[in-house]
Nucleic acid binder design. Structure first.
Length: 426
DNA sequence: TCTGGGGTCCTAGGACCC
DNA sequence: TCTGGGGTCCTAGGACCC
């Protein structure tokens, strides 16, 4: 366990800022009339509910629920049902993060709607003022409501944030600094950040049910019985910071693009067109972060919700030298890989690609016997990326990606769905 | 009929070495 | 007959997160 340098420094705090119902809140910024309406935002292909307004939560709509199970319920409560618009959420996220960055020197963007801020304060009243100021500024400058949890460690700040959201004591922040045990007593051990389903079950076997039980457990026993990961959580719960700050945004170590299909795919050609489309998108991300990759993983599968005989999934990882970020090279590799795992006679529901073994493109040592991406290829890709970005859609693409109109039918995520005409669907 | 997508980190165990 | 005790590197997959 590595303790941070400041572990004994009593005036350093960590603030976790979390946007409330982020996707729904983004939509409301541009449609103020929806302020009090129940709203849900759907996943790709309009399959699941991934964001809910407070009103929708109150009405009993669960997180992650498949839409088809709740359509009557949503109709009954006159909910607004929206397809997701990730471009919008990405831009709103950037605005929020820009505002937050003015409040600290040390900030880590943790997800699209969350950030950690390091802050020092001698008195609690200073922290309260600080939190209040952040809440108001973000609301004023972006229109997004946020909740803030403040404590000595990340794990405790997560708990503080959770209390703030669950118990909504009017203010939009909560500082967890005193009476910590009485709070931990009320928290289920499975609700601690980092404790998932499996660890919860194993902790229950050790008679550890609440966060307080966990905090009071024997650290060396936990380290032996579980792992370094769980042991760190225990120290964090005790107020000893073990989880550091990632100040710079590191380049991705793997880039995944995967989708469920709108309709099932049977033939190899269509399946490969989908895979090629994912490659094009993944390799563009790779180029944007100025990296190359040395491994490509392809996976395909039929629906999980079918009987055992018609279920099939397979995947394959291909390694290659030299490293590349070139779409056409990756498409060639993907074609062979897909052919190897494709089996006719199945109805494929999902496919994905994952680029890994990623290296920075300047530092990469060319293999003496192979040519890397040549400068002409690099320039060609750069121009295509630029044009596609400028026109905000795929204007130039490889023929392997298939007919874009046909692709829309299988992969469309923004296609308005007529069956929801009672709702507002983008 | 209809069930998301994109990440990180860690560990166990195999292969190999001296 | 008797069969050590380290160590490294790599990878697949588990577990967790939003």
């Amino acid at each position: 366990v590595v303790l941070s340098e400041n572990s004994n420094c009593s005036n350093t705090y960590i603030a976790l800022v979390d946007c409330n119902n982020f996707y729904v809140s983004c939509e409301r910024v541009f449609n103020p009339a929806w302020a009090k309406r129940p709203i849900v935002v759907l996943s790709n292909n309009d399959g699941c509910i991934v964001s809910r307004s407070e009103e929708a939560k109150q009405a009993g709509i669960p997180m992650g629920a498949p839409l088809f199970k709740y359509k009557h319920h949503l109709k009954a409560i006159n909910a607004i049902v929206l397809s997701s618009n990730y471009k919008l959420y990405g831009e709103m996220s950037e605005r929020v993060m820009n505002v937050l960055s003015t409040f600290t020197n040390t900030m880590e963007i943790y997800s699209v709607d969350e950030a950690w801020l390091q802050v020092s304060a001698r008195k609690i009243s200073q922290l309260e003022e600080y939190a209040q100021d952040i809440v108001q500024t973000v609301q004023k400058n972006t229109g997004i409501p946020i909740s803030i949890g403040i404590a000595k460690t990340k794990v405790l700040a997560k708990i503080a944030n959770r209390i703030c959201k669950k118990e909504r004591n009017e203010s939009q922040f909560f500082i967890l600094d005193t009476n910590i045990d009485s709070i931990l007593e009320r928290i289920d051990v499975g609700d601690i950040w980092g404790i998932g389903r499996n660890l919860k079950r194993r902790l229950h076997q050790e008679n550890i049910y609440t966060a307080l039980d966990f905090k009071n457990s024997n650290p060396s026993y936990i380290r032996k019985k579980f792992s370094i990961v769980v042991s760190r959580l225990l120290h964090e719960l005790k107020g000893l910071p073990c989880l550091g700050f990632e100040k710079v945004s590191n380049p991705r170590k793997q880039i995944i693009v995967s989708r469920s299909f709108k309709t099932r795919i049977i033939d190899f050609e269509s399946l490969f067109e989908a895979v090629a489309t994912f490659i094009a998108s993944a390799s563009q991300k790779l180029r944007t972060q100025q990296s190359l990759c040395k491994a490509l993983h392809i996976s395909i599968r039929t629906s999980r919700h079918v009987n055992a005989e018609s279920f099939y999934q397979n995947s394959l990882t291909v390694r290659f030298e030299p490293a590349t970020a070139h779409t056409s090279k990756l498409i060639q590799i993907a074609q062979e890989a897909t052919a190897q795992i494709y089996k006719p006679g199945f109805e494929y529901a999902k496919a994905g690609v994952c680029l890994s073994e990623i290296v920075p493109n300047q530092a990469y040592q060319l293999n003496f016997f192979h040519e890397g991406d040549t400068s002409k290829e690099i320039i060609l890709e750069r121009i295509c990326d630029h044009i596609n970005k400028k026109f905000d859609q795929k204007v130039i693409y490889y023929a392997a990606l298939g007919n874009p109109e046909a692709r829309k039918v299988t992969l469309a995520k923004l296609r308005p769905s007529k069956k929801w005409d009672l709702y507002t669907v983008r």
